[in-house]
Design a protein around this nucleic acid. Structure first.
Length: 300
DNA sequence: GGCGGACTAAGGGGAGTTGT
DNA sequence: ACAACTCCCCTTAGTCCGCC
């Protein structure tokens, strides 16, 4: 028994004729007759009593048809649900490194979301490997990965061999973020010595994005956090703290109560790169996000 | 090659119609 | 009233075609 058999039976009941039902179902009458017979045999019941004047529904047929109509109604409901959502839902998913400028770009995308339509939006801050996994395994559309510039030659071919397209768009040197009330905030440029004895607020699972080599020079006092919000809170509330981070837009620094400073001795260049599956079709929100993240990065 | 879906042709059977 | 005819509906048999 399958859904087609249920549709056949319900149509026959509706028309009270196998011939008429076959006509409505755009199939030959003998086929419909046989299909219904097979259905009855598979269930071990008689749904219709055949007469030369048409068909009659048996008592057990009434029970079967009641269930069949219920099932078909549910199937129709599911089909309509996904038909509507597939065509109308605004979808956007991106996996990114922890970076204020990327969050700002995401905020710009959210402003363009039509609130009258359903939407499914995923914004996940993740490290290098996790961002790739999110695209390859979890169905994310876009990703941004961060890596040291020297590794680009090995990273790009590796990603392309996995069916990912790569578009580097932003190069930067890490800066030091501190509270705007910190004694360091007044300085134009820091040296690594300025960080000695201070506490670094770092992300626990960071891999490429933090200049870890400098920790030895700065002394290794660290508080590990898992999200940018906690990092900013601690920078503001705990004296003598700092964090390595990618450059932030001025507006973001002001809203967080932070200052960012260049640090002599940290010269390694990092890159942020857009990645997405080969053949991926960009939604309007995807295009907007890509444009905004590039636009904001250019101003940093 | 097996299987399922669909077609045509042939035929069975019941109900209504018609002629005697 | 009854037999023959006609129509309608359904089933069966044989076959083709596409898919796995």
């Amino acid at each position: 028994m399958n859904l087609v058999h249920l549709k056949y039976a319900v149509e026959i009941e509706k028309t009270r004729s196998i011939s008429k039902a076959a006509e409505n179902l755009l199939m030959a009458q003998p086929n419909l007759s046989r299909a219904v017979k097979e259905l009855e045999e598979s269930l071990g019941i008689t749904i219709f009593r055949r007469t030369s004047r048409g068909i009659l529904v048996t008592a057990e047929g009434e029970e079967f048809l009641r269930r069949a109509r219920s099932i078909l109604a549910q199937v129709e409901e599911v089909e309509n649900y996904y038909k509507y959502h597939k065509t109308r839902t605004q979808k956007f998913s991106v996996s990114v490194p922890r970076a204020a400028y990327i969050s700002d770009a995401f905020g710009e995308v959210l402003k363009q979301v039509d609130s009258s339509l359903p939407c499914e939006i995923y914004f996940k801050e993740a490290g290098y490997e996790a961002a790739i996994d999110n695209i390859l395994q979890e169905g994310f559309g876009l990703g941004i990965i961060r890596f040291q510039r020297e590794r680009e030659g090995e990273i790009v071919p590796a990603l392309e061999s996995k069916g990912l397209r790569c578009e580097p768009f932003f190069e930067f040197v890490h800066v030091v973020a501190v509270s705007k009330f910190s004694s360091l905030a007044a300085k134009q440029v820091l040296g690594l010595d300025d960080l000695k004895g201070r506490i670094e607020i770092a992300f626990a699972e960071e891999e490429f994005e933090v200049p870890a080599l400098n920790r030895k020079q700065c002394g290794c006092r660290r508080i590990c956090v898992f999200e940018r919000g906690s990092q900013a809170d601690l920078l503001r509330s705990v004296p003598n703290t700092y964090a390595w981070c990618s450059p932030m837009p001025q507006q973001t620094l002001e809203s967080l109560g932070l200052a960012q400073l260049e640090c002599k001795g940290e010269e390694r260049v990092f890159k942020d790169m857009l990645i997405y599956p080969e053949g991926y079709r960009f939604s309007e929100l995807d295009k907007l996000f890509m444009a905004k993240v590039r636009q904001i990065a250019r101003l940093l």
